[in-house]
Structures are given as structure tokens and as C-alpha cells.
Computed example of a mutant assay.
Amino acid sequence: MLAVQHPLDVADPRNVPENAPEHCPGTESELAGKSAACEGCANQEICASNIPKGPDPALPLIRERMSTVKRKILVLSGKGGVGKSTFTAQLGWAFAADDDIQTGIMDVDICGPSIPTILGIASEQVHSSAAGWSPVYVQDNLGVMSVGFMLPSAKDAVMWRGPKKNGIISQFLKDVDWGTLDYLVIDTPPGTSDEHLSIVQYLKESGIDGAIVVTTPQEVALQDVRREIDFCRKVGIRVLGVVENMAGFVCPGCKTESQIFRPTTGGAKKLAKDMGMEMLGSVPLDPRIGKSADYGVSFLDEYPDSPATTAYLDIIHRIKEILGDA
């Protein structure tokens, strides 16, 4: 039977060669060149040598870049399809509604970069300058970085192993000219794998202000979300609270609400209570949310009278309160 290791021991995102195997322990690890994953790797001899191993040279650069970012917030789920990226976009738009607040959104869902489409900037490209890569701007105070801007076309699959994913996340943090930001909202993929471990490792010194965990009411989603909360506890990330998406359906015509995903085990409210988390709020399913995402417009601006808009704004206000920014 294989020994179960702590997540950070399994895939600590260190410096890794471009051609490293999938489960490369990293050149700085004590297991470098000695683990089972190293068998057959072209770099095995070099990694196994007694060359002194130091800290990742990217960390000081990341620390310097992030020194001008006041708040760093992760949006997590554990489960795919719960509306995490949509919530990230609404959060970014809500922060940027105040012209005096500078906001950035970093999309680290490397294999499923949907943020550019949701924000209506899918056709844009990243430009570089002497200061680094420039974010793509939705408006003057809302900048975005995503691997989606770097693909030849929207239908191209991203087929990258862990080391390359870690590399691009490192570049997003150290090479992007974010400037001075009040909020950097980081949209993550489902699960607790490479991208999540990379963000935690790279921002360890800069600090993460907290995570927002998104779920839907049914038990099949809640199971994965419990694992995500456990991940946060193991790596020392503060969970700001839980958001329940698709909590009932709102008819745009009659405003009547009905349940689509029935909370058979108590939904997010019970999960938050059981896990000792704050329930930030529930957002009903309004079909116009999907329409807004497809057209790349702000649902909050387009449909201010929707119960979903009220729910979003209440949740966002509570997040600001928790962070001491309200």
C-alpha cells in the first residue's frame, strides 16, 4: 500500500525543468533525482547531485510585485460547474464599480480559462513592455490576466503537465505589471491540485487574505467542497465564507422562485455550520446570469432588479466587512 503524504509534500511547486515528468518533486526537494517519478528523466543525474539547493529565485520577484497589492482573494470550489468563475467576474465588477478601487482578476484555471469570455475580452491579447506583461483591461480600473489570451484560438486544448502550469502561474505573479491594486481576485480550477498548490507556495510570503468557497446545494457538490475546505485548513488559508450558487430558480417574468438543485442534506447552510464557516449568502439561479456571461457583460449592471443581483451585492458587502474594507 502506498503511503499517504501531505499535499504539499506531493507536489511542492518548485523550480522544475521544462521536460520534467508529471510528478517531479522539484529541483530543490530532498527527493530530487531519487523519487520514482525521476526514473528515466534526462535531468535525474543533475538533480540527484550534491549541488546546493536554495529557495526558488522567483519568490523575491513575486514578493516585490505583490507588495503593491493590498488584498489577495482566492475563489475556490472543489467542484466544477458551480458558477465559480461567474462569481469571480461579478466580484471583480462589483469592486471596480467604485472608480477609486483598482481591481485585478487572475485566472489560474489553466485548462479551462473562461474568465476572458465572461468579461467580454476573449479576443484580446497580452502585450509586453519594459515593466512586464500588461493585463488586459475590461475598464480603466479592472485588469485581467488569463492563459486564454495566449491561445491561438478559443477551441485549442491546453495540454500541460504540472511543471508548465506552475511556470505560467509564477509568470502571472512576477512578470505581470499589475501596478497598485486594492484587490486581486484569483479564479482557480476545481480540485486541490497543481494550480492551488502553486498559488499557496508562491504567495506564502506575500500573504493570502482569504478564500471564498463556492458550491451548489446538492450533496454531490458539497462532498467536493468539504475537501476544498480541508485543503484550506491544511495549507493555512483563511476561509472567508461559503457562497451557495443556483439556490433555487427565479422566473424572470413572474419572479417566482423554485428549487432546481434540492438541498437533500441541508445545502451550504448546514455545510457552513458543520465546518465552522460563515455562510455568506445564497444566489438564486437566474437564466440571465448565463446570458450575461455568454455576452461578456456585467449581470449586476444589466439586471439590477434581479433577486440574484441583490444576493450578489449582499455577499460582496459582507466580504468587504470581513476584510475590514466596508
Score class of each variant (00 low, 15 high):
M1L: 12
A11D: 11
P17N: 09
P21F: 09
P21C: 12
H23T: 14
C24D: 01
G26F: 10
L31Y: 07
S35D: 14
S35P: 10
C38G: 11
E39I: 15
E45I: 14
I46W: 12
C47N: 03
A48W: 07
I51F: 11
I51G: 08
G54Y: 14
L59G: 10
P60N: 04
T68R: 14
I73A: 06
L74A: 09
L76R: 04
K79C: 03
G80T: 13
G83I: 00
F87T: 06
Q90M: 11
L91C: 02
A94H: 03
A96I: 05
A97F: 00
D99V: 08
I101F: 07
I101Q: 04
Q102W: 05
M106P: 07
D109Q: 10
G112L: 05
P113E: 07
I115E: 02
T117I: 13
L119N: 03
A122P: 06
Q125L: 12
V126T: 06
A130W: 07
P135S: 08
V136Y: 06
Y137S: 09
V138S: 04
N141T: 08
M145A: 14
L151F: 10
L151C: 04
S153T: 13
A154F: 12
K155C: 04
D156K: 15
A157H: 13
W160L: 06
R161P: 05
P163E: 08
P163I: 08
K165R: 13
K165H: 02
K174W: 00
K174P: 00
D175L: 10
V176C: 11
W178T: 06
V185I: 15
D187P: 14
D187L: 08
T192M: 13
S198R: 03
I199C: 12
I199N: 02
V200L: 09
Y202C: 02
L203Q: 07
G207K: 05
I208S: 03
D209A: 03
A211K: 02
T215V: 00
P217N: 04
Q218P: 07
L222G: 00
L222E: 00
Q223K: 14
R227G: 11
D230Q: 15
D230H: 15
G236V: 13
I237P: 02
I237N: 02
N245E: 00
M246K: 03
A247V: 00
G248L: 08
P252S: 05
C254P: 11
T256I: 13
E257S: 11
E257V: 06
S258C: 05
S258W: 01
I260F: 08
R262C: 05
P263G: 03
P263Y: 00
P263T: 02
T265Q: 13
A268I: 01
K269W: 04
K269Y: 06
L271G: 00
D274M: 05
M275K: 06
G276H: 08
E278A: 15
M279Q: 09
V283Y: 01
R288P: 04
S292L: 07
A293I: 03
A293E: 05
A293H: 03
Y295G: 10
G296Y: 08
S298M: 10
E302H: 09
P304M: 13
P304E: 14
P304Q: 13
S306I: 05
T309N: 05
T310M: 11
T310D: 12
D314P: 00
R318H: 12
L323H: 05
